[in-house]
Structures are given as C-alpha cells and as structure tokens.
Write a protein that binds this DNA or RNA. Structure first.
Lengths: 133, 133
DNA sequence: GCCATAATACACTATTACATGGAATAATGT
DNA sequence: ACATTATTCCATGTAATAGTGTATTATGGC
C-alpha cells in the first residue's frame, strides 16, 4: 500500500472499526428494512399498490382486469401485502376491497420514483456533494 | 356477517377503469422501481450501505471484517451495488475502496427506517388520513 | 522474477419467490 | 337447495438469489 498520490475523495471520514461498529445497524432493524423493501421489490405488487393509490380501493377482480393478470396471482400478492399490513380489506357482498393502510408507502414510492428519474437525468460530472446527514 | 351496515371507508374514489389505466405506472417505471427495491431488499447489502454511509468509504476487507462475513460474499454484493451505480470505487494500492454514489440512497434508507419505527409505534386508531396529493 | 495480499470470477448448492392450474370456500340470487 | 361469481388454498415447476470453495487476476514488497 504505498500511498502514493492518488487524490483521496473528499468524503473520507476514516473512522475506527470500533466507532463504526458502535453505530452499525442492528440485526432487527436491518431485517425489518429488508422485509419492507422485499415487499416493494416486485413489479406486480408495485403495480397493485400504484393502482390502489390512484383508485382508493379495488377488489381482486378489478385488479386482475386492470393489470391483465390471473386472479390467483393478484390474490397471492394481496395476501402478502395484507400480511405485512401494507393493505387492509373491506368486504362488500362477494367482493373484497383492498386499500393501502399506511400513506407513507405511497410517499416512499413517489420518492423512489423521483430518485429513479433523477438518476436518469444523471449528469456525469461527479461533484461530490455531501448528502446531508 | 350480515351485509349491510359496515361503514364504507372514506377513502373510496370510484374511478373508472379507463381513468385508472390512464394513470397506471408504465412498464419501464415499475421495472425500474422493482430493480431499485430489489437492490435494497437484502440484509447484507443494507448493512454494507449503512456501514459505508457511516464511514464514508471502506474496502472489501474492512467490510468483511466489520460485518463478519467472507470476502467473496461482500464482493458479490458490492459488484451488484456497483452494477446498479449505487456505489463507486477508488483503488489505492491493493485496496479498492467503495463509497455510496447517490446520497438519495442514504436518505431513502433513513426514511424507510423511520417508517418502520412509526409502524411499531402503531396506534390502532385507524384514522384514515389522506397521504397527500 | 517471486511471493503475499486484496479482490474478483467461476462453478455449485440451498433457499426463496412467483405464476399457474385445479380444488375449496364464501356470499348472492334464483 | 343449487348455480354462479369472487376469492383463497394448495401443490407444482421454474427462475432468481445468496453464500461457499476454489481458482484467477492485480498490485506492491522483496
């Protein structure tokens, strides 16, 4: 490791292992985060959530027609979403209407979409701006 | 389960299928979102990103020691993160230092963590507050 | 050039996830 | 009660994923 004159990035903080370890995300939180993102990491569920956020509530049949998929496929994902308390249900006769429970989900989706757009508009100038902190 | 007097949720918007279809997320965006969330939906990658956001930059060896995992496992996930342009590299001698490129990633992580915390503090009073929009 | 270390590439395995088809359950109308 | 429709349950095949072990590449010290 010689040292050399490569310009070190301005972002380098050089913390000790102990300092880093002390701040490390704990198992519970990282597992929770993984679970949350897993729920969102599926095109079918994303489209379901997006449709629900637009229409307010929809039943399985509506969704399968709208997204052009089988009823079972939609139901599968709705079960998963309901299991994670992302959506809730209301029964009306033979129909079961699903709706988004936590508005934060919609917000997170919008923010992620926004991030995607900006990364497309990606300027290659690598100005190393601090995030914030 | 007699039909009837269940109070319908106030969130019902009742849009027609055409109206919904017109606003539906397009394939490209939903696929992009899925990809972004897939990247985040892994405990190892989350811990890597968190460690990087704390320390600024780390090499594979640092990370494998900090997270107590094999070098290959860390490298695997770093390749995936680099492939998605989430992290970038800098070589210094034999070491290759990784850093987070887009500060929005850290922000998204924080926001998701915040959401998790609030859903733990979950008040069961189901006040249906509109997200926004 | 030779060796040690850091990082990666490759092949392999175990696990998970998703859509599908068919059957079962629930609610409604006749 | 029976048929019909909406939804869910279950078993299956397929694909993707993550970690491991081994081999390979790259850099620097000797």
């Amino acid at each position: 490791m010689s040292e050399s004159q490569e310009a070190p990035p301005a972002i380098c903080k050089q913390l000790s292992a102990e300092e880093i370890n002390a701040q490390l995300i704990d198992q519970g939180k990282s597992a929770g985060l993984e679970n949350l993102f897993k729920i969102l990491a599926n095109e079918t569920r994303l489209r379901i959530l997006h449709a629900l956020s637009i229409s307010g509530e929809m039943c399985v049949n509506d969704l399968s027609a709208t997204l052009d998929m089988k009823n079972q496929a939609i139901s599968n994902q709705l079960q998963k979403l309901a299991g994670s308390k992302v959506v809730a249900t209301r029964r009306s006769g033979v129909n079961i209407y699903y709706r988004i429970v936590d508005p934060c989900v919609s917000i997170l989706l919008e923010r992620a979409l926004c991030m995607l757009e900006s990364s497309n508009t990606e300027r290659s100038s690598e100005s190393q701006q601090q995030a914030d902190k």
